[in-house]
């Protein structure tokens, strides 16, 4: 009963947040950026016709009410966005709806982020368990320092180093990812090729982000270890592995879920840069293209989608937390 009410409250919260994100987007691109007829419309004509009119410009001005007062523009913007019209590209692919450009890119990024997060979490739990259990010993010091060092490295630099060492100097992994090639491949070799290409980007993710999980688990383990029930576990003669598996980990795991919530915003940022260097045709590379070609409607839509994605992921993690913690669940 309570759980359902919690879900409802969470959903309302997410909807309100999305509304504010859309408003922030409007504020950034249509107020702070300056004259929207200058920023959000193509320079000159996208497709000029004989009469010398600009049909695209006229259409966009009408569609987004760019010649109307601010309030009207704001309402028009919200109506358009919530009915799925995210805008029209003005320089990158002039005249093409932004949603059409973004849609095929989304799945690529989701696969990358999903695989990378799973791998990072898995390794983070293993490392965090070791260093939390052996706090202050050499193993802990080595793990903590090396993960922190990885955490301080900009992901674009790690990507460059990995490509340089494993693709350019020693030619093990491919330098360039040709997404067009998949049309000519059968399913199995396409999947294998995809996995082969994913290894270095995922390795970059792990190197730069594993500290997030390993340090969280280490700290929550050290909170748990002095508890009375851990002493009881030892007193009743459980082996170290049993103590860890049955009593320490279940209690130390919860902060990991919270940590993963904040992690999504981080992972999106990491993905952007990694995609650029590894020529992965996802949202990140699109961000780069939108930035370098000053395609503001495209950039605005990417920002909107990335932010909403993070908010939703956070909400899911919150609900998961609630589900995993019996104290909260049954309260």
């Amino acid at each position: 009963m309570n759980f359902r009410r919690y879900l409802l409250r969470k959903a309302v919260y997410v909807i309100i947040t999305i509304f504010f994100i859309a408003s922030l987007n409007f504020l950034l691109f249509q107020v702070i950026a300056g004259d929207p007829t200058y920023v959000l419309l193509p320079r000159g004509c996208g497709t000029s016709n004989v009469t010398g009119e600009c049909p695209l410009r006229a259409q966009l001005i009408h569609e987004w009410a760019l010649d109307q007062p601010l309030i009207v523009r704001f309402v028009t913007y919200l109506r358009n966005v919530f009915s799925g019209n995210l805008g029209t590209s003005i320089t990158y692919q002039t005249g093409v709806p932004v949603a059409t450009i973004i849609a095929p890119r989304l799945s690529t990024t989701l696969i990358l982020v999903g695989v990378a997060t799973a791998a990072t979490m898995w390794l983070g739990i293993i490392l965090g368990r070791i260093s939390g259990w052996r706090r202050g010993r050499p193993a802990d010091v080595i793990i903590t320092l090396s993960t922190l060092f990885g955490y301080s490295m900009p992901s674009f630099w790690v990507s460059l180093l990995l490509i340089f060492s494993l693709s350019v100097s020693v030619r093990i992994f491919p330098v360039y990812w040709d997404f067009g090639a998949y049309a000519r491949m059968d399913l199995l070799s396409a999947v294998l090729d995809y996995i082969w290409h994913l290894i270095l980007p995922v390795a970059t993710f792990i190197i730069t982000n594993v500290a997030w999980f390993s340090l969280t688990l280490r700290n929550s383990l050290t909170d748990v270890l002095p508890e009375d029930y851990m002493i009881t576990a030892r007193a009743k003669g459980l082996s170290q592995g049993q103590q860890l598996r049955w009593h320490a980990l279940p209690n130390a795991r919860l902060p990991l879920v919270t940590a993963s919530a904040l992690y999504f915003g981080w992972v999106v940022s990491g993905a952007i840069v990694i995609e650029i260097v590894f020529t992965i045709q996802g949202l990140g590379q699109l961000t780069w293209e939108a930035t370098t070609s000053f395609d503001f409607p495209l950039l605005s839509a990417i920002f909107l989608i990335a932010t909403i994605g993070v908010v939703v992921a956070n909400a899911v993690a919150d609900v998961l937390y609630m589900f995993l913690d019996p104290r909260v669940r049954e309260a």
Partner: peptide, 19 residues
């Protein structure tokens, strides 16, 4: 909380390019 949840890199990119 609202500003905390916005992914930092897209946000800072958008801010700088707009300003």
């Amino acid at each position: 909380d609202f500003f905390l949840v916005i992914p930092w890199l897209p946000f800072v990119l958008v801010l700088v390019i707009i300003l």
